[in-house]
Design a protein around this nucleic acid. Structure first.
Lengths: 219, 219
DNA sequence: AGAAAAGGTGAAAATCATATCACCCATGCA
DNA sequence: TGCATGGGTGATATGATTTTCACCTTTTCT
């Protein structure tokens, strides 16, 4: 569901539709979009809309005037209560003793409920990415990760998870095939690996709910 | 303001339009109104709309598909307390009116002081990246950005900044050369651009202090 | 070198929507 | 009685919008 990336041009079409919605409370026509972005043929616009629909950004109602609907449901941060969860900031631990994770926290961070994605705050903790194995996904070494503790057997294939590998905390895409845990990186220079379910070197903590990063200085 | 009274029939037409707006985020056609209220002729509906316009409940745009606008201006305020820094979540605004940024917030997010990097909480706000122009830096469309409002003249070259470009909020690497603002993307498919310091289309808000992203679900 | 993919142009055909005209029927008053 | 007002029917004219076709250019990837 992480929306497919848009090209620069597609993005400006999409943003124009949103802007038009904000201003007029209704969708623009193909011609209006074209006028705004200097596309003379409604067909050119139509192709952009088709791409946006394929990528899941909009929905079209065929043959209908202004038949464009935004798919984004603009999640409002107020759907939650106003309590601020304080999550433990944990440090790397020998994967043979994953239970030590919570017993030796390095601190705690306040986190808006939005970033817990409806998970129980008591099941969540914060760790830091130990390598750049998921850099193509925009997760870099040092990033703060909101992790939901959950047994790997309940995870759907493809979930992005935090893993204690020996004494490092890393992020990988998880899948369970042929009786083994497969950890797939998103960075060509990192290797894919597989482990036995009970390998003491490898402990899957649970899915990554959010990623946070300080820019500028060192985290 | 509280306009002239409506007849029962006129009121149900009016209420239907409002209901349609809530459900579809756009105005209905004459035929749709007629179908809903068992009026077979679009002319019958048209007369109702004319009456509603006369009485000041709606506005019509001639010859335009779904050319109905509600005249009503409903605003909804909100409140929040502050213990942990609570930063305004702002939405994109026409760059010609950057001052509107804070005046029309979409909400607020609690943010740990760590991610404010020692900046004054009152100078900070949260916006969302409007494109993938900095994807190589791990900043993607939809990411939440902690932005420190600061005049661009005080920014060192190379700072990663949030910019209001027309009606989009985007992230770029900033530099000031030969009397022009240069905005450098970190994604090969996006173009580098430069603007005059006072170009009304381009307003630099300030440096990005942190980036946050929800995984898995909708942002 | 060749083939996709992104982005377009232009114009005709097919629909969807609105505007208008002519006419009908109640009801409430002066 | 007389006639203005609210509510409607149906048909037609006139736009406004979306679709579809046939081709074209540039950039990117293999």
């Amino acid at each position: 569901m992480p929306p497919i990336r848009l090209t620069e041009r597609q993005n400006s079409v999409y943003e124009h539709i949103r802007a038009y919605f904000r201003e007029h409370s209704k969708p623009p026509t193909l011609k209006e979009i074209g006028d705004a972005l200097s596309i003379r043929s409604t067909n050119g616009v139509s192709k952009h809309l088709h791409a946006l629909e394929q990528k899941g950004y909009i929905r079209r109602i065929p043959n209908e005037a202004r038949g464009i609907a935004l798919v984004d449901t603009g999640a409002d941060p107020f759907a939650f209560d106003a309590e601020v969860p304080s999550l433990l900031l944990v440090s790397r631990t020998d994967s043979a003793h994953p239970d030590k994770l919570r017993s030796r926290p390095k601190g705690a961070l306040f986190t808006d409920p939005l970033f817990l994605d409806r998970a129980d705050e008591d099941d969540c903790l914060i760790g830091r990415a130990g390598d750049d194995g998921m850099s193509d996904l925009g997760i870099f070494k040092g990033d703060y990760l909101v992790i939901e503790e959950r047994r790997w057997r309940r995870l759907p294939d493809g979930t992005v998870v935090a893993v204690l590998l020996r004494d490092a905390l890393i992020v990988r895409q998880f899948s369970f095939l042929n009786g083994r845990l497969h950890l797939q990186p998103a960075n060509k220079s990192y290797a894919k690996d597989a482990y036995a379910p009970r390998d003491p070197e490898c402990h899957v903590i649970g899915p990554i709910l959010s990623v946070m990063r300080k820019l500028g200085g060192k985290g």
